[in-house]
């Protein structure tokens, strides 16, 4: 059975995996750890602080998708949840400002915090173990040195724009030592929170807690975590001459190479965006077959800044493992 998803002009075929027992009589397809160990492969193509691009090869869709889902919604991270306003004379409303502060990604290792107990009354809920306190105290004033004919508010006024970097970390109790090396800062300091004009001020205190993306998108540690299937291009009949150039033009640069015989060959299918442009041209009818490899996942994980992408991925693996563990020990399953 082919593991190529067929990309046709107006439909996608062979989308579901079929390597399970009982699908075909001549194949066993029972899952085998040894076989999996042998075939499974991870290839990392790029990795940095905020973004990772890696391939998971020969793994079932359900598992790959589980990683994706868990990264988005179940890997915990820290975000502002309770905002206490002491003063806000700006035009932005308390609720809106609180919402904006909540969405600011914070550079905190979620493992440094414990989960908050919502059953406790408000006074006892927040401790130095589960809460990070950020404060914002800003006041806009006129800039006395501004040139007379200036109209730019950034020159005319001081602290006219309030950015995420203006949020100040206030370590509580044990946090003084624990966070001494890595004080809490917003992952992106240039997020605009509010605009002020002379005389306006904001004074607030935000309690940041641990949460998961399923509860609110602000707790999601990734901007996006997704995968695509590895493109697969099969040239069934040789394409030569000028036709080959036109053929190459149907794909992004670098996907199709042209050899010395001026014949098109598939150079790097990974670069293909599968725009299906080639299927629009009649001259390539029956000359090319587009497809995607069903068990080759090209993952792309963009971190929002609190953790590195590989950390997020490993956490998702751990969470999936714990879930499996839980199911295994679940009384119902026995």
């Amino acid at each position: 059975m082919s593991n190529i998803v067929g990309i046709e002009y107006n439909r996608v075929t062979n989308t579901t995996s079929n390597d399970f027992p009982g699908f075909a009589k001549d194949q066993d397809a029972a899952w085998d750890v040894e076989k999996f160990k042998k075939t499974f492969d991870v290839k990392i193509s790029s990795l940095d602080e905020r973004e990772a691009n890696f391939d998971l090869i020969h793994i079932d869709t359900s598992i790959a998708n589980a990683f994706r889902r868990i990264m988005i919604s179940e890997v915990p991270s820290v975000a502002a949840e309770y905002v206490y306003f002491f003063n806000n004379t700006s035009v932005i409303q308390d609720e809106v400002l609180a919402h904006r502060i909540g969405l600011v990604p914070l550079k905190v290792d979620p493992d440094m915090l414990s989960w908050i107990d919502n059953s406790l009354p408000d006074e006892e809920k927040f401790t130095d173990e589960n809460t990070i306190v950020l404060t914002l105290n800003v006041k806009c004033t006129r800039n006395p040195d501004a040139p007379k004919d200036c109209t730019d508010p950034n020159v005319l006024y001081r602290s006219a724009n309030i950015y995420a970097r203006d949020l100040k970390f206030e370590p509580q109790g044990k946090q003084l030592e624990a966070f001494a090396k890595c004080p809490v800062v917003p992952a992106d300091p240039d997020i605009l929170l509010a605009k002020l004009r002379p005389g306006q001020e904001i004074s607030l205190r935000a309690h940041c807690i641990l949460g998961i993306g399923g509860d609110h998108a602000k707790f999601s540690p990734v901007s996006t975590a997704s995968y695509r299937l590895m493109p697969h291009i099969q040239i069934t009949k040789p394409i030569q001459g000028e036709s080959a150039d036109r053929f190459a033009n149907c794909f992004p640069a670098g996907v199709i190479g042209i050899d010395e015989k001026h014949e098109a060959y598939v150079k790097d299918p990974r670069k293909d965006t599968v725009s299906r442009e080639v299927l629009r041209h009649e001259e390539f009818n029956d000359k090319v077959k587009l497809g995607r490899v069903r068990d080759h996942f090209v993952f792309n994980v963009e971190s929002s800044g609190a953790m590195t992408p590989e950390e997020i991925f490993f956490k998702s693996v751990r969470i999936l493992k714990n879930k499996a563990e839980y199911l295994k020990n679940c009384p119902i399953s026995q």
Binding site: N10, R11, T15, S17, T61, S62, N65, R292
Partner: peptide, 15 residues
């Protein structure tokens, strides 16, 4: 576009 189902992770059969 070719889309993947968020629930099963498989490709959708239509564009």
């Amino acid at each position: 576009d070719m889309l993947y189902s968020g629930i099963t992770g498989e490709c959708l059969q239509a564009y």
